[in-house]
C-alpha cells in the first residue's frame, strides 16, 4: 500500500499472516469433520464462507453429528457467535469504515482479527492488523475447509481415523486460552457437571444449551471478577 511502511504496520501484518496460516490449517479438521457429521461438501463450504466463525461452525456440525434438532444446532451456533457482536463494538470505532467495507469488516470480525487489531497501538497498525488477519484467515480457512472436506469424503470410517476424538480436541483447543480466570474455571466445572447430568436425560443439543443457561445465571449473579484478567478477549 505504501512505499515506506512504519515498522508497527509491518509487525501487525506479519503477526496477522502467521495467525492466518495457523488458523487456516485448522480448517482442514473442520472440513473433514463437517462431511463426517453428515454435511455435503457444499454445505461444509457454505459454513466456512458464510457463517465464518470457527467455534460456531464446529458447534453446528457437532449438534448435527449427535442427531440434535435443527433448532438446537442453530441456537448453539448463534449463542457462540454472540461474542463476535462484542468484538464488533470494540473494533468498529478503530476501523472507521463506511458502506460495503463495513459489511466486509463485520463478516471478518472474529476472535483472531479482533485480537490482532486491539493488540496494536498505532491506529494504522490496528487497521492493517485487522484486515490482514481477517482476510488471511478467511482465504486460508476456506481453502483448507475444502481440502479437509474432500479428504473427509474419501476417508471412509471416521472412527478408524480417530476423527470423532478430534472434534473434542478441537473444542478443548478453542476453550483453553479462555480458562485463565478463576471464574471461567468455575463455570467450566459447572458446564461439565450439567452436561454429564443431562446427556442421559435429554435429546442431543439440550445439555449444551443448558450449560450456556447456567453460565448466564452465573454471569448475572456472581460478583465481578478482578479486573485485568483478560476475560472476553481472544488469546
Amino acid at each position: 500500500m505504501h512505499s515506506s511502511r512504519p515498522p508497527e504496520v509491518t509487525a501487525a501484518v506479519r503477526q496477522g499472516l502467521s495467525i492466518a496460516v495457523a488458523t487456516g490449517l485448522y480448517g482442514i479438521s473442520f472440513g473433514a469433520l463437517g462431511v463426517v457429521a453428515g454435511l455435503s461438501v457444499p454445505q461444509t463450504m457454505a459454513l466456512s464462507l458464510l457463517l465464518f466463525s470457527g467455534g460456531s461452525q464446529f458447534a453446528l456440525i457437532g449438534v448435527v453429528a449427535a442427531g440434535g434438532t435443527p433448532l438446537a444446532a442453530v441456537a448453539t451456533s448463534t449463542l457462540l457467535g454472540v461474542r463476535n457482536m462484542l468484538y464488533g463494538a470494540v473494533v468498529a470505532p478503530l476501523l472507521q469504515v463506511r458502506g460495503w467495507r463495513r459489511l466486509a469488516a463485520a463478516q471478518l470480525t472474529i476472535d483472531e482479527s479482533t485480537a490482532v487489531a486491539v493488540g496494536q497501538r498505532d491506529p494504522q497498525a490496528v487497521r492493517a492488523g485487522f484486515w490482514t488477519t481477517g482476510l488471511g484467515v478467511f482465504v486460508l480457512w476456506n481453502l483448507c475447509t475444502l481440502l479437509g472436506a474432500l479428504a473427509g469424503d474419501a476417508l471412509g470410517d471416521p472412527r478408524a481415523w480417530g476423527l470423532d476424538a478430534a472434534a473434542g480436541a478441537a473444542f478443548l483447543a478453542l476453550v483453553w486460552p479462555r480458562l485463565a480466570a478463576r471464574q471461567a474455571q468455575a463455570v467450566a466445572a459447572l458446564a461439565v457437571a450439567v452436561t454429564l447430568a443431562l446427556v442421559p436425560l435429554t435429546p442431543a443439543g439440550i445439555p449444551v444449551l443448558a450449560a450456556a443457561a447456567a453460565a448466564i445465571v452465573v454471569g448475572l449473579v456472581a460478583p465481578p471478577a478482578r479486573p485485568g484478567r483478560g476475560e472476553g478477549r481472544a488469546a
Binding site: 462484542l86 473444542f171 478453542l174 449444551v208
Partner: peptide, 30 residues
C-alpha cells in the same frame, strides 16, 4: 461489565459442554 462477563462465561460453558458431549456421549449414553 455484566454483558462482557456473561458473554465470556457463556462462550466458556458452551465450548466445555461441547468437549464433554464430543468425548463421552454416545447418543444418550455416557
Amino acid at each position: 461489565d455484566r454483558v462482557q462477563r456473561s458473554s465470556a462465561l457463556v462462550t466458556v460453558a458452551l465450548l466445555v459442554s461441547l468437549v464433554v458431549v464430543q468425548t463421552v456421549a454416545d447418543g444418550q449414553a455416557v
